[in-house]
Design a protein around this nucleic acid. Structure first.
Length: 920
RNA sequence: GGGCCGGUAGAUCAGUCUGGAAGAUCGCUUCCUUGGCAUGGAAGAGGCCGCGAGUUCGAAUCUCGCCCGGUCCA
């Protein structure tokens, strides 16, 4: 459902916005002539709404307020709202693993989507506040290119979420009146604003099919906070009041801190140490008045509306009284420093929470950020250590987010690796460009596109590298836009095929799962609830595990009154478990049945599933805290575990993981299974429980391996790690950049694998009659000898040819002036070529045709001396036709042959005639 | 997830479109030149042309599948 804001606006009138606060304080409602929004003010002659553009830019710069730094701002907001009845909850990771639809947490409300907002689970507290770090690295929100140029944009920022939830059951929340009261009180009492300095601008918020009114607080030409009230949705095309109404106030924490300090840009306010460091290393100095004016004007850039800011920035330069080039020269380095500090901060935060730069998904945005750091450093020839800037930003973040410093080593390791990869791209880029320049002194647009898309060499790098060779490359301003146009033409979509999509069940029957009670049990009784489309049996309870959470379903049989059915598939629709039977089911509703699952198969599946949990943590122990499960698959035969990792896993690392995992097996650690409320589980165990990806529902099954691993997982698990028996890692591969797949065998399949390997080893060593131990050495020797002997054979063949045709032993015939050698002989094509070419060396004017046959084909080779005018190619072609093949060649050499062995005699009888007709 | 590019000697790459005796440069070995070094000259060693099928008389080259690496986009 997408309805334009103008359309929605018709639904909102004065009453929807006029809160108690406005009445009490005597706010009046006005219309902003600049942006056409209604706004509320205490100043009757106030003309505009007070938004940055309407107010003519920022008015708070250089104006000292409460002077709260980043961490003090978090504390100030937290203290205020806790004092006013809110609970402060811990922030969520910036990598949003509880959601499948986004890579990074982009707003504080995302923490509560979808489960809380859909009413499935209760919020962790109500009302609450959360200092949620958010990441916005692209898309509609901010163009990365503009970071640093606008004085106010960041790729990561804290959205200090203030949320209240209201529904029939959630009665502790509050609505607009209290929200605006709190808002006004904070702004006046804590931030120290005077009441007549604050305006509230009316607006409509919409997102995810929902919408509602919002009131933005404005002061001194900037938006301070947006009070959003999620109140409405759509049902059958009609507007409907939501069952769950939510206060969604996102305090732009950095903005608030900046406002309180009045520094020229947001960057100095938030991470002053990083900016000071960069300025100092580069002896950078700028006239403070110029910077202030630049910053004030930057606030007016219409970032949200225009993608390429260049035209606007040319205007900006004019207003500053300088040319665009001059502005880039004086302020460009500073803008780059801002961007570098920002990017380092975002990278530190995301990597700390387990993201990895790569060429896919959100990881790609991180790679772009790092490469921009390097590119900007080079472009303005900035002096600084990338390690230092990361350390400074890690320090800065760690005051309020201490988990960042715990990952310091990992962050440096990943950044170093990425830089190395980038440098390698550049080295190969230089070579490729040098080669191109040897062929042509010009690099055209199409070439730029190829270099960028295939080799990852961006146009600026091409320009730079070409300049080293004194070639100027013209890079079009709209290069990236043209690339996008090229790509959008290639876009295509794929449909998902959902098995049993067409199957309709009358209602959502709740099948009680017996498989959680005792996982080793194989027999059960139950009652038939329904049979759908003859084959699909629904029971009131079941031991059959339906496919889900990466674990395959059980198989087995269901019987009653002498009839027995095989269960071939088990799956879930909603909370109904459906047993797919091998033949048509004749059970009436209410029939009591006996069920039995294939216990051996179930055990094998459980071994693999539990082994995956064991391996997951073993991999984390060996490779680092950035390891997360990115997918898994468990069957009776094998298991696969995909983990997040930035490079291939070495053989040694695999062995370490395997050893560690088996130690856990040998220690017979107990496995505790429990059901927990989602919010309690998140609180007690943290987000590491979401290894398996998104887990639906209010109640989570928690699988806890004693002092090893805790995950939310709906699968069936052993009671004890010892029951796994043995774990064998049989391989690993990088299935995509940033993800490594581990192939795992547990229990019997592991044993079979080991025995099979032993068998292969034994057979191989038997062939060579050696012990398996010395097999590598022996094979190596054999391989070496094989190569040597191949070479000797080549040499000998050459010698044989020399001996055979250098003497007068062979008979030759002469037609006109041409000496002719014809022989039916043996040998492969290569050998014949050597001999024939050797043979004609004895003559000024001579040809040699050799014919050989093996078990399935005839080979014909012809050679002529350089002076001979014989058409050797035509001769061989004609001869080859006789044996059912064809031939060809070039220069003095002709090659051919065919499959008809019995025609060789025909060849011999026709050969002289064919030769004669092709000698001119 | 969807594309695109690449894998040939120890290294860097030609050759692939248009099938026909596997090449270049650097490096390596030996010899010559020199009092020694730099250099210069000569000879030589070094290739499962990523793997597997297919087409063909014949495949580094064409077709299909796989493996590995790189890269762009969502």
């Amino acid at each position: 459902m997408s309805i334009s804001k103008d359309e929605l606006k018709k639904n909102f009138k004065r009453e929807n916005y006029e809160v108690e606060l406005f009445k009490e304080k005597g706010y009046i409602r006005k219309l902003c002539p600049s942006c056409n929004h209604n706004f509320w003010t205490l100043v009757p002659d106030k003309e505009t709404c007070g938004d940055t553009r309407c107010a003519g830019g920022y008015q708070f710069l250089n104006k000292k307020g409460k002077n709260l730094n980043f961490d003090e701002t978090i504390k100030s907001l937290t203290d205020f709202f806790v004092k006013n009845g809110h609970t402060a909850i811990k922030d969520y990771p910036v990598v949003s693993r509880w959601r499948a639809d986004m890579d990074f947490t982009i707003a504080s409300i995302a923490d509560f989507q979808p489960w809380v907002l859909e009413g499935v689970i209760d919020p962790p507290a109500n009302p609450l506040v959360v200092p949620q770090m958010c990441i916005r690295t692209g898309g509609e929100f901010s163009d990365i290119d503009n970071i640093g140029k606008t004085a106010r944009h960041l790729t990561s920022f804290v959205m200090f979420g203030q949320h209240a939830f209201n529904s029939k059951t959630l009665t502790d929340g509050y609505w607009m009146n209290k929200c605006l009261d709190l808002n006004f009180t904070y702004l006046t009492e804590e931030l120290g604003l005077k009441s007549d300095e604050i305006n509230y601008v009316e607006g409509i918020w919409s997102g995810g099919g929902n919408f509602g009114p919002n009131l933005e607080a404005m002061a001194f030409g900037t938006e301070l906070v947006n009070n959003v009230f999620i109140a409405y949705g759509f049902e059958n095309g009609k507007v409907k009041k939501l069952d769950m109404q939510v206060i969604d106030v996102g305090w732009g924490l950095e903005r608030t801190s900046w406002f309180s300090q009045g520094t020229p840009t947001i960057y100095e306010a938030i991470f002053p140490k990083a900016i000071e460091y960069l300025k100092k290393e580069n002896d950078y100095d700028i006239n403070p008045d110029l910077l202030l004016e630049y910053s004030r004007l930057s606030g007016l850039l219409a970032v949200e509306e225009v993608k390429d800011l260049k035209d606007e920035r040319i205007e900006l330069a004019k207003k500053l009284g300088m040319s665009y080039d001059e502005m880039i020269k004086t302020i460009g380095p500073l803008e780059s420093m801002y961007a570098i500090a920002d990017h380092a901060r975002t990278l530190s935060m995301t990597i700390a929470d387990g993201a990895i730069p790569s060429n896919v998904g959100g990881g790609y945005n991180l790679r772009v950020l790092l490469r921009r750091i390097i590119a900007l450093k080079e472009l303005f020839k900035l002096q600084f250590s990338i390690n230092d800037i990361f350390d400074l930003q890690i320090d800065h973040l760690s005051v309020s987010y201490p988990r960042v410093k715990d990952q310091r080593d990992q962050i440096h390791k990943i950044i170093d690796l990425e830089i190395k990869r980038y440098e390698e791209t550049k080295v190969s880029g230089r070579r490729i460009i040098n080669q191109l320049l040897q062929k042509s002194k010009e690099i055209k647009f199409n070439t730029l596109v190829d270099l960028y898309q295939n080799n990852g060499i961006n146009p600026l790098m091409v320009k730079e590298l070409a300049k080293e060779k004194n070639v100027e490359v013209d890079v079009p301003d709209d290069f990236y836009i043209r690339i996008e146009e090229l790509l959008s033409k290639q876009a295509d979509k794929k449909d998902e095929i959902v098995e049993y999509k067409g199957l309709k069940i009358d209602k959502d029957y709740v099948t009680f799962p017996l498989y959680y009670t005792d996982v080793y049990q194989t027999k059960f009784t139950a009652k038939v609830v329904d049979v759908v489309d003859d084959y699909n049996l629904i029971l009131d309870q079941t031991l059959f595990y339906p496919t889900g959470g990466g674990q395959i379903h059980d198989t087995g049989k269901i019987s009653s009154e002498g009839k027995e059915y095989q269960v071939t598939n088990v799956f879930r629709i909603g909370s109904t478990t459906i047993h797919r039977l091998g033949e048509k089911c004749t059970f009436a509703k209410g029939t009591k049945i006996n069920g039995e699952i294939n216990g051996k198969r179930r055990l094998a599946i459980m071994r693999h599933h539990t082994a995956v949990h064991v391996i997951n943590n073993a991999a984390k122990e060996v490779l680092g805290d950035h390891i997360w499960q990115a997918g898994a698959d468990k069957t009776p035969e094998k298991a696969r575990l995909d983990i997040t990792h930035y490079q291939s896993v070495s053989f040694e690392e695999l062995q370490k993981i395997e050893t560690l995992a088996n130690q856990v097996v040998f220690e017979h650690r107990s496995i505790e299974k429990s059901e927990r409320d989602r919010d309690a589980a998140e609180r007690d165990f943290g987000f590491h429980i979401y290894q398996g990806g998104v887990v639906p529902g209010k109640i989570l099954h928690i699988i806890a391996i004693n002092s090893w691993d805790i995950e939310a997982c709906g699968g069936t698990h052993l009671d004890n790690t010892g029951d796994i028996g043995i774990i064998k890692l049989v391989g690993s591969e990088r299935i995509q950049d940033g993800i490594v797949r581990l192939d795992i065998l547990a229990g019997e399949p592991a044993l079979n694998y080991i025995q099979n390997q032993e068998q292969i080893l034994k057979e191989s060593s038997n062939i060579l009659s050696v012990e398996p131990k010395i097999l590598p050495k022996t094979v190596n020797r054999f391989f070496r000898e094989w190569k040597e002997q191949k070479k000797i054979i080549d040499t000998l063949n050459k010698k044989i040819a020399e001996v055979q045709y250098s003497s007068s032993k062979i008979e030759t015939k002469k037609i006109k002036s041409t000496e002719i050698i014809v022989e039916e002989t043996y040998g492969n094509q290569k050998e014949l070529i050597v001999r024939a070419s050797q043979a004609v060396k004895n003559f000024e004017d001579g040809i040699c045709i050799l014919i050989s046959s093996d078990d399935n084909k005839v080979t014909i080779v012809g050679c002529k001396s350089p002076q001979s005018k014989a058409n050797i190619v035509e001769m061989v072609k004609e001869l080859s036709l006789i044996v059912g093949g064809s031939g060809g060649g070039k220069g003095d050499l002709a090659l051919g042959g065919g499959p008809n062995l019995e025609k060789v005699s025909d060849v011999m009888s026709n050969i002289h005639q064919i030769i004669e007709s092709n000698i001119s």
